[in-house]
Simulated scan of single mutants.
Amino acid sequence: MRKIIFLFITTFSFAQSVTKTMNLLADTGQNTSYTATFGEDNDYSINMPSFTNNANGTIIDTVTGLMWQQADGSEMTIESAYTYADNLVLGGFSDWRLPTPRESFSILNHQNTNPALNTTYFTNTNAGYWWTNTYQTGDNTKVWVTNAGGGIGNKPKSETISAGGTSKFHARAVRDITTPAVISNHFTDNGNGTITDNLTQLIWQKTPNATAVTWENAITYAEGLSLASANDWRLPNIKELQSLNDESLSNPSVNQTFFGSIGVKNYWSSTTVQNQTLNAWFWNTEFGITTFGLKTTVNYVICVKGNPVNLAINSVDLKSKIKVFPNPFSSKITIENAVGNEYFKLYNEIGLEIFSGKNIEKKDFSDLLKGIYILEIKGETDSKIKLIKQ
């Protein structure tokens, strides 16, 4: 007899219109493992960075859909940076602008450092920082900037050489290839202890872990979390974590209507500092800077999961008699207690179908990326099982 699951969830949204300039949130690019504990940044490859060189001084980020200036506009004050971007004509386009903090952070690559960029596509100009279009809330002497080490923060605008300082703050312009959409609700409270970010389509734990823990324990906590009938939670990478930040707010720098328990704290990401492997990146919610600290220190945890469009993970049936092993798996998936007429579908975390058919045990998944997958089994009893590819 087929088991039918009815799921009733009350959702709440409030008027919070926001402009969506990026199609997807790009991955950090980190591809090295720094711990045997499963769940670090390297273990998940979602929306890996991808660029196209237009051979005219412009680069397209094929993940976000933004077009970037290949070589930045050199060192200048923030006032000059606004003028520079507004007057730039490049690649046949004149609608260039300074990026938002989130956009500027999106092209950083956390497998690289100094600069934390893919220098195959972006010219290394020895910049220390890159201007964004956003001043610190309540203080027009400070501006949000990304830095060559891979971070983002609010810095005094007087620190650049052209303003009498000693650091190189450069301008890199961006433009929209298509007209950005306006989303009426940035966040949705799903009524089950989770919040959906409608910009990134990520689902967040509404109430963070109340106890500060080390980085390794943060990973273990996230991987073991069961919330809202889902167990595919993980520790967010630093780009995902920073995407929650609202630079118009401070103390904390996040929407309190939806994240009322987040407080002014440090939150671990799953991302290691590439050239300082005893350190990991974290997000501080006083203003929203990203910085790093020793993995043995204690910070707080807020977990994240994907929002698959094609897969209702919330209806996972954990009572199935069918056993799937090994889990984690590396190449082959073995099925036990199957009747013989089952049909299998394997999805990745964002709902993309990887395999469909009856003979899943004959399939070699050696080339499959590491991460969380959901195996959907259609038969006398339908079920879904969480698998980890290592």
Rank of each mutant, 00 (worst) to 15 (best):
I5H: 10
T19G: 01
K20C: 09
T21H: 11
N23Q: 01
L24G: 04
L25A: 03
Q30D: 09
T32E: 04
A55E: 12
I59G: 00
D61E: 06
D61S: 06
G73M: 10
T83M: 10
L90K: 12
G92M: 02
F93M: 06
P99H: 01
E103G: 11
L108V: 08
N112G: 01
T113R: 09
N118S: 07
N126W: 08
A127D: 14
Q136Y: 03
T141P: 00
N154I: 04
G165V: 03
K168H: 00
V174H: 06
V174T: 06
V174K: 12
H186I: 01
N192D: 15
T194L: 02
I195M: 07
D197F: 05
L199P: 03
T200C: 00
Q205F: 02
A218M: 09
Y221I: 07
L225M: 13
L241N: 04
S243P: 00
D246K: 13
D246M: 12
Q256N: 15
N275H: 12
L278R: 02
A280H: 01
I289R: 08
L294G: 13
K295I: 00
V301Q: 10
C303W: 00
N307K: 15
V309I: 13
A312I: 09
L318M: 09
S330N: 11
E336F: 09
Y347T: 03
E353N: 06
D367V: 09
L369K: 09
I372C: 12
T381S: 09
T381A: 14
K389H: 12
Q390R: 15
